[in-house]
Design a protein around this nucleic acid. Sequence first.
RNA 1: GGGCCCAUAGUCUAGUGGUUUAUGACGCCACCCUUACAAGGUGGAUGUCCCCAGUUCGAAUCUGGGUGGGCCCACCA
Length: 796
Amino acid sequence: MEEKKRYDAAEAEERWQKYWEKEGTYAFDPDSDKPIYSVDTPPPTVSGEMHLGHAFSYTQTDIIVRFKRMKGFNVFYPFGTDDNGLATERLIEKTKKVKASKMDRQEFIDLCLETLETIRPEFVQDWKSLGISCDWNVFYSTINDHSRKISQQSFLDLVKKDRVYRKEAPVIWDTQMQTALSQVELEDQEQDSYFNDITFKDGGKDIIIATTRPELLCSCVAVFVHPDDEKHKKLVGKELEVPVYHHKVKVIADKRVDPEKGTGIVMCCTFGDQTDIEWYKAYDLPLRVGITKDGKMTDLAEKYAGMPIKEARKAIIEDMKKSGELVNQKKIKHIVNVGERSGVEIEILESPQWFVRYLDLRDTFLKSGKKLKWYPDHMRSRYDNWVNGLQWDWCISRQRYFGVPFPVWYSKKTGEPIFADSDQLPVDPLKDKPKKLPKDHTEDDIIPETDVFDTWATSSLTPDLATQLFKDHKVFKKLQPMSLRPQAHDIISFWLFNTLVKSQMHHKRNPWETVAISGWALDAKGKKMSKSKGNVIHPQEMRDKYSADALRFWASSSKLGDDLAFSEREFIAASRTITKLWNLARFTGMHLEDYDGGEGELQPIDRWLLSRLNRTVATVTDALENYDYVRIRLDVDKFFMQSLADNYLEIVKDRLYGEKNESRTAAQYVVKTALTTVLKLFAPVLPHITEELYQEYCEKSSIHTSSWPEATKKLISDDIEKHGDLAVKVISAVRKAKSQQGLSLKHEFNKITIESSSEKELEAFLPAISAATKTKDIAFGKAKEEIEEGLKISID
RNA sequence: GGGCCCAUAGUCUAGUGGUUUAUGACGCCACCCUUACAAGGUGGAUGUCCCCAGUUCGAAUCUGGGUGGGCCCACCA
């Protein structure tokens, strides 16, 4: 047999990935009777490449899934890509140098679909090359026909259940992207601004109000003061004259006013911020729209009409300075909401939108959250926190070009919506016509809805998108509810919550039994990675430099839910473990060529190792059942490096090299058992190297479909371990002596005298000590005795 | 401002009341070519367990308060 001296990770990893795909190692078997473990895999957004956070969290899930597979589950582990919505639009606009707003809509959609097809394989390849054990044939894209159909079906079902409505409502608006946004799509940004003290007129008296947005004066519909504000409460009920525009507005008392802020008096505009919306609703205030959808002033702004918002602000400030209506300006820094993709300050505008009504279901959602098993458990409170804080129904419409269209048309005559038939889905109302027209309507009497769904409206259906691939199969019912939802903590309020909402509405049950929440991968300083900071680490580079297994080893070093700072040293440590495994397996294999499969005559040191091994199996298995995969890293690594490699192997070397007898057979048995078990325990974390060594030295079939080791309880013994540990202490003391005297470890002392109160326990390990220290003459003795030659060791 | 989480050697980390003179790794220092491995081995040095107070016979561990950091929410006139 030609032996390779070194492990070529890059070569081996690619070879095994191809092997797994060819052999269908991770294929879900719909015909199997084994219990199913199903995973609602997060579909990553096709944005060109996998980032380190992906590598981190997908590895953590993969470890759990690989464990379940080895435990005998029929694993359903699909893979999808999320190629819906704004992210894709932006990607296409950038790479293809086009503007969606300046193109024919269908042409743009075709370009998106076409581009996605070409970049998707390469994108998915990053996941494959990490050794993620998804069944790549169970695939969905959130924009393909299958998903569009399910998403539209979901909408129609909610219509039927009276859970959706269309309404003119104030929505968060991005004037650059020209669409409604959800709370999720906002970012905070600190900006320099001015607090402008401006004068409203109470008859002849000046009332000073501070505002950062004087250009909204044309939209001013009321003025508010705090009901307990002694200074200003006498104004309540009066009508004030708005500067510049001279219309009159009422003064109303409301406790949402902070009397300490500004002058303690606030103007309410429709709309400046969220509080304005609340007041607008609570006091039935008029609507005065000052801003257009593309961020310019309306005719209401009179001389400023048509100006972009910021320009209008400057102009109105200058004019008010001249007129004396602006009495003071204070420079401030304040936080404003900007669109996460456009970076532009958001506005609140009223526009017709589709909503999912769910505020009435708050209690159901809280109860459902309690029924889920959360790992780690404390993540549940983030969910509760969000549900308790819900203020608005879910706005699911977006005024974008690329996405899943609403299956809706409107009657030109009545304005009533006309819904698609569920058997004509997926539909694009821009191209298709409704199956049934309302009475007295021809096709010319209808107009299509041009809005598309919020991406969450579709991605909240991932359990359905994945399992409905098996809809016509008898296994379908068993796939839901799914066993596991893995995801990161930042999107608990969106993806997790929305998925639960849809599942409760459609199926009246939770979409999964368990959720596993992973943390974030941070840069080496523990800071969030972002392109603008330039601290992005590409997992592909690390994979190429070290190996996929090393990358996984790093990812497995942080507890579920904890963030992990990038550390290249961990990759070096991982490489070391991988090399060590390789060498240990080679050594073991060398001595197993004539192994007959028997147990031989076990020596005390053999029982010591077997006890440690079985204890490790027991704790690691138990931990993995609780999603605590870090134990693999902590316990298996420790067992393998310390007990097995550093001590046991050094001790049994001379038995393995020695003549064929029962003692040698026992050593072969233990070494083979330990190697096989260690490989299996490491397999979820290091799938490539363990497969390589398992198939070379253990079995000719995949380690990943082999059975997870079971701990043999009767082999675990506290006493044996304690006594063996003493022997290891003696060996360590001898090594220390050699090290301090500058002697080679091979050096043979004439005699070693051990002083210990545990002579009886050590007695049985003398042959092991002798072998590891290369010294034949070992005896017990007293410290006081004069020893003429050799080494004296004291152990207690 | 509110909720949740985190804080252990230069760095990462184990440890949820006594078994700990705190675990392992990286890094550092010294020695060693030893029949798996020099991409190695053996040994060594390195800690106010964030701070203060309390509970307890005993606290890294429990309680309260503080400081620093993270995520989410709210505010952002």
